[in-house]
């Protein structure tokens, strides 16, 4: 479904050039859920943005659904295959667009018909009722906004969803709801997930395999079962697992 090979991403020009990602390679199989874990600045979100075509300063090979992509250019078929959910539900919805406008514009862009019915379906899919259709973002809670963002991503009926810390801005109880929703949607629509998170427990819950990143490089790709048993081979991964387990008084 997705192959990334020798991906380098950089920002700026020498001498101020920052190499955000260096030589990252991984593959994600159809129907799999793959996690990218690391601390802030490790380049995990940058990889997602490069795949989605939101960054054009990258080199390497990105193959989505047997189609190699270039730079920032993405064709219509790509947008129908790949969609993204962003970290901050407060920043990812246009403050002046109602839920109805967000979803129907998306559907129109994707060339769908029967928009009225589809908007209703999407809202039902993400567990928002009829009453939410004409609300503006400021009338929604964080969790409800993230549901709208997920509905927007689903509108294109994609097969690959890029999830950029989709629950890190939410309360734990809301996080549980959103994670459950994404589990259900994946089963229902046969989706493939690439999920970025700094939270090992969330990735452990959602993913089958994960890559651990540090300073722009992938240090280790492992199975979630190994993560659960603490069977990491790299020292960095071990320290990350230990730190995530919680605070131990010095």
């Amino acid at each position: 479904m997705l192959t990334v090979e020798g991906l380098d991403v950089w920002f700026g020009y020498p001498p101020d050039r920052v190499d955000a990602v260096q030589d990252a390679s991984f593959t994600v199989a159809q129907g799999e859920s793959f996690g990218l874990v690391g601390e802030s600045g490790s380049g995990k979100s940058t990889i997602l943005r490069a795949i989605a075509g939101l960054i054009d300063t990258w080199s390497g090979r990105i193959v989505v659904d047997d189609q190699q992509v270039e730079g920032r250019r993405r064709d219509r078929a790509f947008h129908k295959t790949v969609q993204m959910v962003f970290q901050d539900p407060y920043a990812s919805l246009h403050p002046r667009h109602s839920v109805d406008r967000v979803l129907s514009e998306t559907l129109k862009l994707q060339g769908m018909d029967d928009i009225d019915r589809r908007v209703q379906r999407l809202l039902d899919d993400v567990g928002l009722g009829r009453g939410f259709r004409f609300r503006y973002p400021h009338q929604l809670s964080g969790g409800q906004r993230q549901r709208v963002a997920i509905a927007r991503a689903l509108a294109a009926e994609p097969r690959l969803l890029l999830l950029d810390e989709p629950t890190s801005a939410l309360d734990v109880s809301v996080q549980a709801e959103i994670l459950n929703l994404m589990t259900d949607l994946r089963a229902e629509h046969g989706l493939t997930y690439v999920m970025v998170s700094h939270d090992l427990a969330v990735v452990g819950h959602m993913c089958d395999r994960l890559a651990v990143m540090q300073g722009g490089r992938i240090v280790e790709v492992m199975k979630v079962e190994d993560l659960r048993q603490g069977a990491a081979s790299e020292a960095y991964t071990k320290s990350l697992i230990e730190a995530s387990a919680g605070y131990v008084r010095a």
Partner: peptide, 20 residues
């Protein structure tokens, strides 16, 4: 209790998290 249960845990995998 609900808050505690809704946290995903590495040592206890579940398909669905309990919702508060």
């Amino acid at each position: 209790q609900g808050l505690l249960n809704s946290l995903p845990r590495l040592d206890q995998p579940v398909k669905h998290l309990p919702v508060l």
